[in-house]
Nucleic acid binder design. Structure first.
Lengths: 134, 134
DNA sequence: TCAATAATAGTAATAGTTACTAATATCAAT
DNA sequence: ATTGATATTAGTAACTATTACTATTATTGA
């Protein structure tokens, strides 16, 4: 049985009120403005709970910490392989895989995750800088 | 300048000779049969290098450690959200996003990663077990 | 064969996340 | 409103996966 908590509501509102893709630590720093005594463990626990409920998205980039997204409508993310930054790519339509799922599969398919990967503008200029100074 | 190493070759051969998706630790245990003195750090370093070269694939699941794949032809992975296991889904065709990339984007797009997510058969039976005993 | 330097084994350190515990907050039933 | 059951919290410790460090060894081009 899930009980209300002021902290959880604050975390959800925070994510719903922004369109970037903060890490747990960034959410923690931001929520601390309103809830100065909140602990990082509480942030992690509630982010996991909210993501399980489908109220937020958890984005694992493979580069650094996980990111979170309060905007849950289907959309595609770009992930920078160099710094792990996440950027919305609304130009790319979300695809439909439901009718393509194999008939015989030992398990249940709950959805899919599509990430466009590459290097963001900031990292590109850092990399070109370091090539010059070599 | 990249120099040859016995250890790197052994790691690459190991991955190319199997069709599962081992973690760094699993590769380490396996490669140790042939190279008993190889260190885990060497395995991590070479897996990263081989993945950068495109000779193997690195699969970040968001559940537990990264997995690696020596089979680099385009194919889709199923990832169990519960245990992190990776399973090939060859029935699902790889999609083409090249012609859908936005014209104005600050960065470079190098590719995409598509994962089907859900729960594998083993985890389903574990979960149903724990519901019974509650 | 030699010199330059890349790679290694072994170990220490780090980052990100989860687990633990006593205290506090929520909430349904009185 | 009070109570009791239990979910949640803050604070901290512990853990897992990965990376960094360093002296030694291996590779490679001259």
């Amino acid at each position: 049985m899930v009980k209300y908590s002021r902290q959880r509501e604050c975390i959800l509102k925070n994510l719903q009120g922004r369109r970037d893709h903060p890490t747990a630590d960034m959410v923690y720093e931001s929520v601390r403005m309103e809830q100065p005594n909140i602990s990082l463990g509480t942030v992690y626990r509630n982010l996991a709970l909210l993501a399980e409920n489908g109220q937020i998205l958890k984005i694992s980039t493979g580069t650094g910490p996980d990111h979170f997204d309060g905007y849950t409508s289907p959309h595609v993310h770009f992930v920078c392989r160099h710094c792990g930054k996440v950027i919305d790519m609304e130009e790319i339509p979300a695809i439909n895989l439901i009718d393509k799922t194999p008939a015989h599969f030992d398990g249940v398919i709950e959805g899919y995750e599509l990430q466009i990967v590459g290097k963001c503008g900031a990292c590109l200029s850092i990399i070109s800088q370091s090539l010059i100074t070599q």
